[in-house]
């Protein structure tokens, strides 16, 4: 069953054609990595999936709901689709623990004791149980991102979107975040879509790799096929550039 499906999707910013004839199907439980040069539309694409960006044409089905249908309640989709941002977007006015517990309390009406137990478990999982009562401002970038991941997981989503989760981090912080993401990919049956420049992570974790440029999907192949023998010349060029880093 497909969790996310794009059918002939178009998205414009004024005259700029940000998403061009996008067709894409991601099955439940798949881990897909989305790569491409900056400005290629990867972030736009991932942000349409939970309605942070609206599409102008086509059909976008997420968990059976049509996002282009005005009657669709976007909050229902967001309940089941988590997102981890490049700049974390933790709630600045809440402690780490409150960041994780807020949405389950308000949206899922989860029992308070249960809510706290789950939140602490998740903090344990991302290695930050000792920071439960800290404010976000007191954390390093890598720690913030791990809290943000825990915050998304607390909603027990069916799908989790990662929008360049390590791009704003100092190099020595990246490993911890990728480790957490790798564990999620291995241990859970969530659908994962990751926009990233971390090729070693993609090789190790992804079932499929999608390459985008200029708002179009140029290549969509299995991880092995993509890295060993990319068909698209621009994908080849992109790979040689990022792998030389």
């Amino acid at each position: 069953m497909s969790m996310i499906e794009f059918k002939d999707v178009q998205k414009y910013y004024g005259d700029f054609h940000a998403l061009h004839d996008v067709n894409l199907k991601i099955d439940a439980g798949e881990t897909v990595v989305l790569i491409g040069p900056s400005g290629s539309g990867k972030s736009t694409l991932i942000r349409t999936i939970n309605g942070l960006e609206e599409i102008e044409e086509g059909q976008l089905l997420v968990d059976g709901f049509d996002l282009h249908d005005p009657k669709t309640d976007i909050n229902k989709i967001r309940k089941n689709v988590g997102m981890v941002f490049q700049h974390f977007n933790l709630y600045n006015n809440k402690t780490v623990l409150e960041n994780i517990m807020l949405a389950p309390r308000l949206v899922l009406h989860r029992d308070e004791a249960e809510n706290k137990r789950i939140a602490m478990e998740l903090l344990e999982q991302v290695g930050l149980a000792d920071k439960a009562n800290s404010m976000p401002a007191a954390l390093s970038g890598g720690q913030k991102q791990r809290v943000a991941i825990a915050r998304s997981l607390a909603m027990k989503p069916k799908a989790l979107l990662f929008d360049e989760p390590t791009s704003a981090l100092d190099p020595e912080m990246i490993g911890d975040v990728l480790d957490v993401m790798r564990d999620i990919a291995r241990d859970s049956d969530m659908t994962l879509l990751v926009v990233t420049h971390e090729m070693s992570f993609a090789k190790a974790v992804a079932d499929r790799v999608i390459f985008m440029a200029d708002g179009r999907i140029l290549e969509d192949s299995s991880t092995e096929a993509f890295f060993e023998n990319p068909t698209e010349p621009r994908a080849k060029k992109f790979l040689s550039q990022v792998e030389h880093h």
């Binding site: 942070l52 967001r78 941002f85 977007n89 709630y91 600045n92 949405a103 915050r151």
Partner: peptide
């Protein structure tokens, strides 16, 4: 207020 605060909360399922 940083626009990321809105996006974080909406993506997190808050109305």
């Amino acid at each position: 207020v940083d626009v990321g605060q809105f996006e974080g909360a909406r993506a997190n399922g808050l109305t």
